[in-house]
Design a binder for these strands. Structure first.
Lengths: 341, 341
DNA sequence: GCGATTTTTGCAAACGCTTGCAATGCAGAA
DNA sequence: TTCTGCATTGCAAGCGTTTGCAAAAATCGC
């Protein structure tokens, strides 16, 4: 035969069973109130009995849009992203939107694929939470007519909404705090994403150290993101012979990894060496010693992102703005006065 | 006018620009090799210039299926789920499938919504990784013609594929290990999901303790899942006046929370009290003291789930089977011989 | 150079839904 | 009773793809 006739379930089957037209079924399922109550319940019964589930693809296609919020993150494992994700998810659900997430794992082909997926899905809005992105790809997204907000995308762009944290400020504050405790030999531990914001952070670190005390020593170490990466970076640090009295880490996860390694090598924290992080994830409070870190308000960031994508009322779509969030230093037990060396 | 004419981008626009028919464009974009090379490149150029992205909804609709693997998990934050997720994701990508995740946050309305979403999306396969699910909902999924595998769904069902971990075995082994260290007063810390497998775990715990030593004391405590929940359960434990020499926790996260609280109350681990967990997440190795726990092979589980959903070649769709994985005790520094009391 | 193949392309129906408009039914008004 | 008006329902086009079949174009044999 020319055309396959599917045996699949669809509106027509339900309509037939309920003895009404397709359109009526559609109207019932979408809660349009122009349907007589008796018809309505008949339709619902039929749908129920047939175990019918509307095809969302067909629906999106017919409507010309979907009720889906897309989220792209580079590392699901990082609780920092997870917190933003959760906020976005709950905001979305409260507006009746479903959520789909794509994880890029810091791989750029995967980022491209995720962007394709989201555009292909014609998502109602898109949050891009990856710290680096090629100019070209940014423009692809921006040109897609999908309301989008970026978090901390590397280079500032003209016509996109970008929310970012002022890491410079956080680093400066942390360095000057450590400096005030007498530290004069400090290390910075970052991860391998060296482009964009990260490299700015390194630079800021070095500058801050020298500004606080021109004679101070500063060095940079790096490993993959995560606990293990922190550990690895710490090992490198130890092997390098550089003996900092304070280690400033780019995030809490790495900081915990660093602490673990240092302690295993017999160093005491904060007696022998102070350690700080960024983010203030739950673990920062639960590890031991508890971690001095820079709090970054993830919930607030999540809400801001959402409002900028799909916020009702507010001046959304006000493309091209940049929103800057300040971190706040939270002092705990992993930092103390510098040892004399 | 009767029908709106959209200004959206679609195959026809590309076709026009390239001077070919829609079908040809479609064939080019799908890499069907029956297209002349010169035509092909002309089409690709047009698509590129127009910044065209195929509408996946239309595609899925026309094809009658999507290239999406759906994953439903109850708690993204738990690294245990995250590890399974990552394995599934990488397996999926290696087969050219995209992935969408839905997080239920242990809430049953959210589970229902997620299932609706996945069925509505006509996903190519579905992994359901939530520890509890209503019989009714399970049957909805099973009846949806979508290849599906469940992980650790509460009650064993006849016609579904279920992968589960034999927690009974793990608990027994752990209890007998602790017993061999002289522990006679033990607590079990679970989380509030008290239905299904969890309650079985409690029961197993109590039985095991009494089997190892009929005179032993055993009590159950609980809190919400997670670090904070563990802490909370530990606080309850301390307030109860029950002074166990060993605490067996339902997962590592809770165990770390428990340790933290106990230590803050001045107890030393393992000198005053031993603590064990389940899962063997990264953190178990990085916390201090490092945690004795039951290793559960998440990667292996992920692969098994995937193979059972979309595995090629193997006897997939062999509905109704149950696959059981055994945990393995990993002894670290959080357990030791019992103190005399 | 001409018909017979073999590629390569185009046509148009179908996928399952929404929705503007028209048709129907039924109420009350005249 | 007939007409008007409103509440319901049905009709059918259109959303952007894919794909079976047929038409057209290119290639080949002689």
């Amino acid at each position: 035969m020319r055309k396959r006739r599917t045996l699949a379930m669809n509106l027509d089957v339900v309509a037939q069973k309920a003895g009404v037209s397709t359109s009526t079924v559609s109207r019932v399922l979408n809660n349009l109130e122009i349907v007589k109550t008796s018809t309505r319940s008949r339709v619902l019964k039929a749908a129920e009995e047939l175990n019918y589930h509307p095809n969302l693809h067909a629906r999106s296609l017919a409507r010309g849009k979907s009720r889906i919020l897309g989220i792209i993150v580079s590392n699901m494992e990082n609780p920092f992203f997870l917190d933003i994700y959760r906020t976005l998810e709950s905001d979305a659900h409260s507006q009746g939107l479903e959520v789909v997430v794509a994880n890029t794992d810091y791989r750029s082909e995967q980022l491209v694929a995720s962007v394709q997926l989201m555009i292909g899905l014609r998502v109602a809005g898109l949050a891009v939470i990856v710290s680096e992105m090629e100019e070209h790809l940014i423009q692809t997204v921006a040109g897609s007519r999908i309301p989008v907000a970026f978090y901390d995308v590397g280079t500032p762009q003209k016509n996109i909404t970008n929310i970012r944290v002022d890491y410079r400020k956080g680093i400066k504050k942390t360095v000057s705090y450590l400096s005030s405790l007498g530290h004069r030999r400090m290390a910075f531990v970052g991860h391998h994403s060296t482009l964009g914001p990260i490299s700015e952070r390194r630079k800021t670190f070095l500058e801050s150290v020298h500004r606080c005390s021109p004679s101070a020593d500063a060095r940079i170490f790096a490993g993959p993101d995560g606990l293990e990466g922190g550990r690895q970076a710490a090992r490198e640090l130890l092997e390098s012979g550089f003996r900092p009295t304070a280690v400033l880490c780019v995030n809490d996860f790495m900081a915990v990894g660093v602490m673990r390694e240092l302690r295993e090598e017999g160093l005491q924290i904060p007696r022998d060496v102070s350690v700080t992080g960024f983010d203030n994830i739950k673990l920062a409070e639960f590890c031991s010693p508890s971690l001095t870190t820079n709090h970054i308000p993830r919930e607030q960031i999540g809400h801001i992102i959402f409002d900028n994508i799909l916020g009702n009322g507010r001046e959304q779509h006000d493309t091209g703005r940049e929103i800057v969030i300040d971190p706040e230093l939270v002092v705990r037990d992993s930092t103390g006065v510098a040892v004399k060396s």
